[in-house]
Each structure stands twice: as C-alpha cells, then as structure tokens.
C-alpha cells in the first residue's frame, strides 16, 4: 500500500474496517446493485469462509458468507466450531489480504496478474484453501468467477486497515 493511499484511508469517515462483517456487507450491497452483472455470471450457491490469522487483537478472525443465487444472504462472524458449515475456507494473513485489495484498487476493480484468489491460493500459500469435504472445496472452483467479482467490488469503497 502506498503512503498516500494509507493516509487517504485514515481520514475517510466512510471507510469500512477490515476485517469486519461490515466489510463483507458492503460487498454484498454492491453485489445486489449489480444484479444484471452477477446474473450473467450465473447463480452461485455456496458457503464461503474467510479466516484471517492475525485478526483483531492478533486473534484468528473467521467470517462466513452465504451465496444464494445472485445475492449474499448471510454474513456472520463464526468460531472454529462452525467451520464444517462452510463449503470451503480461505485462510491467510492480513498483509496478504491488504495486498490483494490494494491490487484490485490499483486495477480499478481488477486484481493484478499475481493477486487473483486462484493465483494466491493455488500453491497453498499465501492463501490456504481447504475444506472438510473435497467435493465442497470444488465449489471454490465452480463459482470462482462470481467469488472473484464479488471481492473485486472492494475497489468501490475505502477500506480502513488496522494500524500496527
């Protein structure tokens, strides 16, 4: 992240904190506004979980969001015990997520070649993709374009990152 963009974010009153359920609710709201676009990509039905290893208080932070056709109908913070409810889990650290968001912003809604979800998760690092069920993990592949475009909408609002 550049110093300029960091400053800009720090003073933006409308900035949405990451990680938080509000951040994903902002993405869900954008998705709802772009129904035509997401209808073209096709219905998406899965429960995705994001885990940030170094979340608030340096604790693991987990959030599940439920894709239902062309909407995200449920977003909630969860605990480790809830993990079996997710079709797949994307685990990473805050820095990786921040780099990805910065790349998407720089690309005006399109991540750079090295910052797509598949690119970052394919080698198992820096994002670890896993599931309790290999068939459910495959949902990440089946709906990849929708999930990527869902995240790409982070370019439409300002993210506030925790300060070390």
């Amino acid at each position: 992240m550049t110093a300029e963009s960091a400053t800009e974010r720090a003073v933006d009153a409308d900035a949405v904190v990451f990680p938080s359920t509000q951040w994903f609710e902002a993405l869900a709201a954008k998705m709802a506004e772009q129904r035509d676009h997401f209808e073209k990509l096709g219905a998406c039905d899965c429960v995705a979980q994001l885990t940030i290893w170094d979340g608030p208080g340096d604790e693991e932070w987990r959030c599940q969001f439920v894709f239902d056709e062309f909407d995200v109908i449920g977003i909630k913070e969860v605990t480790e015990a809830d993990e079996p409810q997710a079709d797949f889990i994307l685990e990473t650290d805050l820095e990786t997520w921040q780099e990805m968001v910065d790349s998407i912003i720089e690309g005006q809604g399109q991540p750079g070649l090295d910052h797509t979800l598949n690119r970052l998760s394919m080698p198992g690092t820096p994002i670890r993709l896993w599931s309790h069920d290999p068939l459910n993990r495959d949902a990440f592949y089946r709906f990849n374009q929708t999930i990527q475009h869902f995240i790409n909408n982070c370019a439409s609002f300002t993210t506030h990152w925790p300060v070390d």
Partner: peptide, 16 residues
C-alpha cells in the same frame, strides 16, 4: 486468466 478461470468453473462441475 479469464479463459482459465471460466473453464475451471465448468470443469469442476464435471469432476463433481
């Protein structure tokens, strides 16, 4: 990237 991502989605259905 676009080509592979779109093909990946279809292929995963067949594997499922």
């Amino acid at each position: 990237k676009e080509i592979f991502r779109l093909c990946m989605q279809d292929e995963a259905r067949h594997v499922s």
